[in-house]
Design a protein around this nucleic acid. Structure first.
Lengths: 187, 187
DNA sequence: CGCCGAGTTGAACTGAATCAAGAAACGTGG
DNA sequence: CCACGTTTCTTGATTCAGTTCAACTCGGCG
């Protein structure tokens, strides 16, 4: 059983035969640190699974780098807007450590969802889980202070704080590096 | 063809026979103004469709009323967290006008998604669309000013501004009524 | 007529951004 | 192993959007 296998099973178990065929639709890459999985102006047409390492999604907004998402070992990673709207975007996806990454192409995923009811169910549950996460994140951005958001990250993903440069974490939390620095010096 | 029929068809068309059975799973209600579809401490276990009128989702946060969503004619309406996590919440859903509302129960929706691949696909596409919307809203809250958010609403949903009291709109936009008032007086 | 709630206006306050220097940490090459 | 430049992080002063709190206006309605 690979890690991807486990991750999928946790969301929605597949029958033996569907699972084999579904897993075969995934590619895998071993990539060094600072490698770009998706470069500027490309369409993001894979959902990635981080077997080992860290992926960072970011893009430029008014000349500033915005870190949209950071995905650690054992989690999925995609730019929702670029992937589903199928548009070339200013988005980029980069490794922050030497990593082992798996990925499934948009066409393969939707194709298999059409062929296998089970895969469609899995797909739906992944979307639902993302939606719930997205709602929590929105609530956090809207109502929590920078301090509270940092505290929560410290509690839920302490690993991430140790492995990712401060600037990226700040951007991911929706604050400036200066503010994060002040928070860490507790005030 | 009812409005619900059209709305569903726009997301993901169903075959003749599946459609009939799926539509039969929906209930419908005619309710007066200020009627509560979901009261405090109840689990939200329907996805609603607003055939005519307006629904408002809100809850209390630190003693203050937060308007989470406003759904106008022809759109769907649910509290994502309460519906999918199946927990009693402080959420409430209220009509702002005399309305005709349809709704499908969580159990019926998931049941039919399990029986009909087509319904599962529809369900998945609804989730994806919600996710995209949620991402846009998050981006708006994080990076746009109150003025920009108001301008966008004015452009995309002018109807809503005419039919919904200012206080609710302010809360929906994530600002105080005072700030909205100042924006409208353009500064 | 006077009340009442929705909306407006004003003044003080606040969390975080911005701008601008510094200080530490980190390679890289001598 | 040390000087160096570069990047990363910290610290300080100022500014700004939006909140808070309090008073006031206005239109509708018993």
């Amino acid at each position: 059983m690979t890690d991807l296998d486990i991750a999928i099973n946790n969301i929605s178990p597949l029958s033996e035969e569907t699972r084999g065929e579904f897993l075969r639709a995934w590619s895998s890459w071993s990539v060094p640190r600072d490698h770009f999985m998706v470069s500027e102006n490309a369409v993001c047409d894979h959902i990635y699974f981080v077997k080992k390492g860290i992926l960072r999604i970011f893009y430029f907004k008014n000349g500033k780098e915005i870190t949209e998402w950071i995905a650690m070992d054992g989690t999925f990673c995609l730019s929702i807007l670029s992937f589903f709207e199928r548009t070339p975007s200013r988005l980029q996806i980069q490794t922050l450590e030497a990593s082992e990454i798996m990925g499934i192409h948009y066409d393969d995923l939707t194709g298999m969802a059409a062929r296998f009811h089970e895969v469609e169910t899995l797909f739906r549950k992944m979307m639902t889980a993302s939606l719930i996460l997205s709602q929590y994140r929105m609530d956090s951005i809207q109502f929590e202070t920078a301090q509270q958001r940092y505290d929560r990250l410290l509690e839920t993903q302490p690993e991430l704080l140790r492995r990712v440069p401060l600037t990226y974490i700040a951007s991911f939390l929706g604050i400036t590096p200066e503010t994060l620095s002040r928070i860490r010096a507790h005030r």
